[in-house]
Amino acid sequence: MAKVSANLIKQTALKLLANEPSLASLSLRTIATALKIDVSTIYWYFENKQALLQAMADYIADEITFPDLSLSWQEQLTQLYTNTFNVYSQYSHAAELMISTIPSTKTRLQLIDHSIGILVTAGFDEDQSNTAISSIDFLLTGLVIDLTTENQFRTKITTNGDDYLAKQVKQIHSIAEKEDLIHMQTSIKKRSERTPKKQFEEGMRLIIRGLSASNRG
């Protein structure tokens, strides 16, 4: 077995999250068992579970690459957040991990600063830039968390045979048709046709289109 280190503990915890319904259910004891060490060893590297979660979030953020500065601000934003979406998609509960921790490290603060800086450099003021980046973050984290929850429901229905949840899904379709909720029907159809990444890209285009119009004004 590899020598225990802070990095190994973080990597193991991130892998174990794939089998957990949420961050709350991941315990230090589970991590220690997987590493075949005493839980006290983890405390040698991390003060508590929150400290480990902070380090895990930083580990993920460190994989997000900055965009090519020669691109337009629209392309830079798209590239940066597409990179972020791709990284989040590689780790279970990544979005939940990010919003459950404080961005208090150099890596995460530089990422936020760079994101805002793209818009400030393009001519937006600080307030507009902060609001826009927050909106994109809400879109990204909300979509990824929604995807995680949806996958959990799907597993319960298809793998565990949860009849109650299956009935709830059928009820959505039934009510939408019976009540002639045409917009809801379209939404259901579009949701089934588009991948989560496609949904995110379309949301990004809408935000950037609005920013472009505002910048021209």
Rank of each mutant, 00 (worst) to 15 (best):
I116Y: 02
N151D: 14
F46E: 00
A61Q: 04
I42K: 02
V120S: 06
L23F: 04
Y81P: 02
A2L: 04
S5R: 10
T12A: 07
N48L: 05
Q50C: 08
Q171C: 08
M204G: 05
A2Q: 11
E96K: 15
F124V: 14
T33W: 01
N151F: 13
L119I: 12
V169C: 09
Q76S: 02
P67D: 02
P103F: 00
T159V: 08
T149Q: 14
T33I: 02
S40Q: 10
T84R: 00
Q79K: 06
S72G: 07
S134D: 12
P196H: 03
L97I: 11
V39I: 06
T101Q: 00
L14W: 02
F200Q: 00
D68R: 15
L97R: 07
T149P: 03
R154A: 11
A213D: 03
S214W: 08
L71E: 12
K156D: 08
L143Q: 03
W73P: 01
E193I: 13
L77N: 01
L140H: 03
R194F: 11
T33E: 02
A55E: 09
K167T: 07
E63F: 01
I145Q: 06
N86A: 07
H183D: 10
S129C: 09
T131Y: 07
E201N: 02
L97E: 12
L17M: 15
D113V: 05
Q171F: 11
